[in-house]
Amino acid sequence: MSLVKFENIVININNINGKEIICWSQMNPGEDEYISLGHYSAKAKAMKVLDMIQEACINGHIDFQMPEDSEVEV
């Protein structure tokens, strides 16, 4: 439900539960606010999605859509 411009942001797995992909702006390093990009049923699925995001960025894709939990195979 969010559109995120991928400039000056960090994408990470939330350390609290390891099942949520989050992002935040590097432009506001003092702020504790982040955007949740997706929740997954297992940490392995969240890691797989993080890998998918990295691959999309490396390949120059600007239209990545977060997959549903059921679409991620580990």
Rank of each mutant, 00 (worst) to 15 (best):
S36N: 09
Q65W: 07
S36W: 00
K19Y: 02
I62C: 12
E20W: 00
Y34D: 06
A44G: 00
I9R: 07
C57E: 12
G60S: 10
I9Y: 03
N59A: 08
N28S: 13
P67M: 03
I53E: 00
I62V: 11
N14A: 07
G18T: 07
A56P: 06
I21P: 00
G30R: 08
I9W: 05
V4L: 06
I35F: 04
D63E: 06
L3G: 07
E33S: 15
D69M: 03
H39N: 13
I9S: 01
M52F: 08
H61R: 14
N12Q: 13
I16R: 13
V49F: 03
S41D: 05
G18L: 07
C57F: 10
M52S: 07
M27E: 15
I35N: 08
G38N: 03
N12K: 14
E31N: 15
M47C: 04
A42L: 08
G38K: 05
V10T: 10
E31Q: 13
S70V: 11
M27I: 10
V74D: 07
I58H: 05
V4G: 00
Q54C: 11
S36C: 11
V74I: 15
M47N: 10
N14I: 05
C23A: 04
G18C: 06
P67R: 06
I16C: 09
I16V: 14
P29S: 09
K19I: 09
K43H: 09
I35P: 02
G60N: 10
A44Y: 03
S25G: 02
F64N: 03
P29L: 05
I11N: 06
A44P: 00
V72M: 04
E55M: 10
N59E: 13
H61D: 12
N14F: 11
N28V: 12
W24A: 09
K45V: 04
E33P: 04
A44Q: 10
K48Y: 01
E20G: 01
H61N: 14
N15Q: 12
E71Y: 05
N15M: 09
G30Q: 14
Q65L: 08
V74T: 12
M47R: 11
E55P: 02
I16E: 12
I13G: 02
E71Q: 14
S41L: 07
E31Y: 11
L3Q: 11
L50Q: 08
K48W: 01
M66P: 00
A42N: 03
E68I: 03
L3W: 05
C23F: 03
K48A: 05
S41W: 07
N17H: 10
M1E: 14
V74Y: 09
K45R: 12
A44E: 13
Y40S: 01
V74H: 01
C23W: 03
I22V: 15
P67T: 02
N15D: 13
N8T: 04
V72P: 02
I16N: 13
M47A: 11
S2Y: 13
D32E: 14
I53M: 04
I16T: 12
A46I: 06
N14L: 14
E68G: 00
N12E: 15
L37N: 01
G30C: 08
N17R: 04
S41F: 08
A56N: 05
I9P: 05
E7D: 09
G60A: 12
N28E: 15
G38R: 04
G18Y: 06
